[in-house]
């Protein structure tokens, strides 16, 4: 596949953030004009739609159950309580375990961190090899990889199960890390390949004349020049892997379920009285990590998800 690979999405990666500067519409008009009232009015209504669920989530999680039953889900709590949060974190039950979401949180952390590291390491080396050390057939494998990223995961789930079972890591965290590394590979490889192709080729040539080999050029020349794209890849992977549900539920067992799976089991469990405040606290807790990444990374996040969107 040539440089035209996924042109729109690849362009989106670079332009989504680069072009975020300066609007291009008509000249700004008087502060209060019918046109402005319409624009800002519409945007305000839209923002209410987007913001409301987060508001409701947090407000509900800060109320006691009596107040939840009485009242208005949009109203702020009359009496703030953190009890639902404590319960969601440390006491909520899934099946036989009653140690709350904390278990899922630590599982997710133990899944996400190695998966991010391994997948990014592999993909960045792939991208580097694809650009600078082309060998016969390397582009064919890359093309398969890209088209493979469009195959629904469901098609490859069972063969993966067999593969992990053969390797003896089915149902373990290592197995899930491998799954995330494999299915993250297409998009990350594309990301790094495009980035490395934008670096001057002469630098690579100069390093070869200077006697540096494959690994030395990667670690001493390429890596230090690629910090931004590594940050983008980390954003993409942390949110993607943290939010994963399907792989978690298929490739791990209940004690090792990631946070999303555990959250779903807590909230959608049919036993007992529904504690909506605890459920909402659990939901907020599960969303905290990606939200934190989102608010901290700002514009880089747009680049990250624009890159990751191809994954679907």
């Amino acid at each position: 596949m040539s440089d035209t690979a996924l042109p729109g999405s690849a362009a989106g990666v670079s332009s989504a953030s680069a072009e975020m500067t300066g609007a291009r519409g008509a000249k700004p008009q008087r502060r209060i004009s019918p046109r402005n009232i319409m624009i800002y009015g519409t945007l305000f209504v839209v923002c209410v739609y987007y913001a409301l669920p987060l508001w409701v989530m947090i407000m509900t999680s800060l109320k006691g159950m009596p107040e939840v039953r009485l009242g208005n889900i949009f109203a702020p709590p009359m009496e703030v309580t953190f009890q639902p949060w404590v319960k969601a974190w440390a006491e909520a039950c899934t099946g036989l375990n009653c140690d709350g979401l904390s278990r899922g949180f630590w599982n997710s952390a133990r899944i996400t961190i190695p998966s991010v590291v391994v997948s990014i390491l592999i993909a960045s080396i792939n991208g580097y090899a694809l650009i600078n050390w082309k060998f016969k057939g390397s582009d064919i494998f890359f093309t398969i990889l890209i088209f493979g990223s469009f195959i629904p995961y469901q098609v490859m789930l069972y063969p993966m199960v067999i593969l992990l079972r053969e390797l003896g890591i089915y149902g373990t965290l290592q197995g899930l890390v491998l799954v995330h590394s494999i299915f993250g590979m297409p998009i990350l490889t594309l990301l790094f390949r495009n980035y490395f192709s934008s670096l001057p080729e002469e630098l690579f040539k100069a390093a070869r004349v200077d006697g540096a080999g494959f690994w030395r050029i990667y670690f001493q020349i390429m890596l230090p020049m690629s910090i931004p794209i590594f940050v983008v890849a980390i954003i993409l992977q942390v949110t993607g892997i943290w939010n994963d549900f399907l792989f978690g539920v298929v490739f791990t067992k209940p004690e090792l379920y990631p946070m999303t799976v555990q959250l779903n089991n807590i909230v959608n469990s049919v036993q007992g009285v529904k504690e909506y405040n605890v459920n909402m606290a659990a939901t907020v807790l599960t969303g905290l990590v990606p939200l934190f990444v989102y608010f901290v990374s700002g514009r880089l996040f747009v680049r990250g998800i624009a890159a990751g969107a191809v994954k679907g």
């Binding site: 999303t260 799976v261 990606p290 939200l291």
Partner: peptide, 17 residues
């Protein structure tokens, strides 16, 4: 920001709303 959240979180919030 909703795009940063998982479908699980999305589904549960809207189930509630």
């Amino acid at each position: 920001y909703p795009f940063a959240l998982s479908f699980i979180v999305t589904g549960l919030v809207w189930q509630w709303v």
